[in-house]
Design a protein around this nucleic acid. Sequence first.
DNA 1: AGTCACGCTAGCACAGCGTGCTAGTACAGT
DNA 2: ACTGTACTAGCACGCTGTGCTAGCGTGACT
Lengths: 200, 200
Amino acid sequence: MTADEQNMSSRDRIIAAGAVMLGEDAGARLSVRAVAERAGVSTGSLRHHFPTQRALQDAVLARVYDEVVSDDRIHDRTVPARERLIDCLRLVLTPTVGEQARQAWLTVFRTFLVPEQTDEIRAAYLGMEREGQRRVEYWLSVLVEEGALADGDNTRRARFLCTVLNGLSVERAFPAEESILRSEAETLHTAVDCVLSSPA
Amino acid sequence: MTADEQNMSSRDRIIAAGAVMLGEDAGARLSVRAVAERAGVSTGSLRHHFPTQRALQDAVLARVYDEVVSDDRIHDRTVPARERLIDCLRLVLTPTVGEQARQAWLTVFRTFLVPEQTDEIRAAYLGMEREGQRRVEYWLSVLVEEGALADGDNTRRARFLCTVLNGLSVERAFPAEESILRSEAETLHTAVDCVLSSPA
DNA sequence: AGTCACGCTAGCACAGCGTGCTAGTACAGT
DNA sequence: ACTGTACTAGCACGCTGTGCTAGCGTGACT
């Protein structure tokens, strides 16, 4: 146990241990016992802080994602345009992770999909979607302005990226095969590369 | 045991039992012991035919899926590879359009997202997703074989395409801005072009 | 000072899981 | 008749998530 770990509460040690394990193997299982042992804590103690394994995984994942991004990143020309765009897109996904993603989608579905489709509901949903797409289009326009992205149909590009984000978001809400960190990153890279190298 | 079941081999009985269990509860876990008992077979026997649980799930799901989608299209070399892949991907989306898409997603959500996340539900969803991705990977492998697609990481490519399909599927269920057909076609083309022109 | 309550920790018990393994059976080919 | 192969049965191991009780310290109230 390091000095840092001594000064951390059990809860923090557990999350830290889980984060480390995710770092070593992005597809780590984060089993109760393994994390507890790694954190130098009993399973009972761990289960006091995280009553279910899901709670544990969510907490660790949230910690990992929290160390990531902010919005004005798109203007930071010291990093490649590609990374900036990816970070910003990730920003959209950040609020939804694990159980939160599930709750978020449940809310969305109950709000927009379960009730019969009135014009009001339609308009509300379209407003949300438009706002999301507007942000993406803005990021793209910034890249175009600085020459990192060829002038072209940003609306179409943004719609493509939003579709990918929708897919990723759904996949976050549903159980993931392995760590969504890895596959999600790959997919995001693929999509962004596709947009950045698009002729028109 | 019914007369039919008596005349079936153990292997068939196992798959049939698994399919029935999936039919009764789409979130069934298909555990080795449960399926074996249901099929009136010992676990050892089951494990002879299906060495791993994964093999069992895949076999059952393949059986279920085989009653739905046709792969013929991908082999029709009279049309460009790009169009064929797009058609096959569209094939996945076809069952869900408009109100049907809404109903389909409602079912999916009620099955996999509303109930609390058990290992059973997890496994069931993952199996479905895996089977879908397996199909896409197969289509890609056909294109690779005929030289229309560079040899590369088809798993990653398939995951990307599945994510796009997920996004498109969601967007079909929710209210659309204007004609979803055009934007959907554009997005699908973008995604497919992205994959077909990928270096690795 | 006593004691009561509560946050926290430790650790065991249980049922379930996937899987490795061996022993036994039935039937084909030689 | 002998042998090999396909199949079946079933046990054992180590793992999982979770429920549970017992003990520890600390702070508040009588």
